[in-house]
Design a protein around this nucleic acid. Structure first.
Lengths: 138, 138
DNA sequence: TTCTGACTTTGGACTAGTTCCAAGCTTGGG
DNA sequence: CCCAAGCTTGGAACTAGTCCAAAGTCAGAA
């Protein structure tokens, strides 16, 4: 993720403290924060950052393909920094934890006869179930 | 869909004009209306129906499993009366038309080793691409 | 180093979509 | 036909997100 900033500079991004902090917050595996969560975590590092800036920066990162926008629950969008490796999502129906699962090319073909003539360009899969913790808790 | 009302009565639903009209509006193949669209179409049949009632009724139909809630774009939820046959969605990236595609059991298995120990209970797939009309228009 | 213009950030107002609520109305069993 | 439980209503409230004009800052040029 540290070379994310380098990539962004190469693309003409002005490097501001705010953007650095947003990039830092979006760091790691299985990270799927809402804009609001990004804002409050960024605010812990840079207190005066505004919500508008967080939304702007997330929107730009998505447009550049550095971050994925994920919508698993019809509520707030989540931002997923794992944009380099194709993957899908596994969502716990009880605690709403999200895990990334690697994409498997075998499961992503739409049988041609059901395609209605669409030119398919992408597939999103959301698996739902109980995570191990919630299985034990129930 | 006409026996939907019968099923609902059997489950103790009070049959009101409003509920009848909402059920009627949600009728057909490849129907994916927003709550607002349901409200304005229902309003054409029963002018005084309120937005709150449309939301209530849709929520109840979803809870009973008679209608599916679909969220393909992070904007308004859509309501899909095709809840009896397992299926997925094909969304045009340009005009946002939605088509139902039958589920194919072969494409819905999550390789066990990537499952993180989840007990999977369901899968949603969204295929994205250009619909035939938009391919011609471009 | 300083200047400077283009790019960024900011807070607050605004919108869309949805939920909540208390008051009034309807349905259908008795 | 009565009436209690259940339903509907309009409006206020809430959540997530967008927009805007003014003020601030980065980084290349001098």
């Amino acid at each position: 993720m540290s070379d994310l900033l380098a990539r962004l500079r190469d693309r003409g991004w002005r490097l501001t403290a705010q953007r650095r902090v947003v990039a830092e917050v979006l760091n790691g595996e299985h990270v799927h924060l809402t804009a609001d969560e990004v804002h409050s975590r960024a605010g812990a590092l840079l207190p005066e950052i505004s919500r508008a800036t967080v939304y702007n920066t997330l929107g730009e990162l998505v447009a550049l393909g550095e971050v994925l926008e994920v919508n698993t629950d019809g509520r707030a969008k989540r931002y997923d920094p794992n944009a380099r490796r194709a993957h899908h999502h596994l969502v716990c129906t009880r605690c709403h934890t999200i895990r990334d699962v690697p994409a498997d090319p075998r499961t992503e073909v739409l049988p041609a006869e059901s395609g209605f003539g669409f030119a398919i360009s992408g597939v999103e899969i959301t698996y739902r179930g109980l995570c191990p913790d919630c299985q034990n808790a129930s």
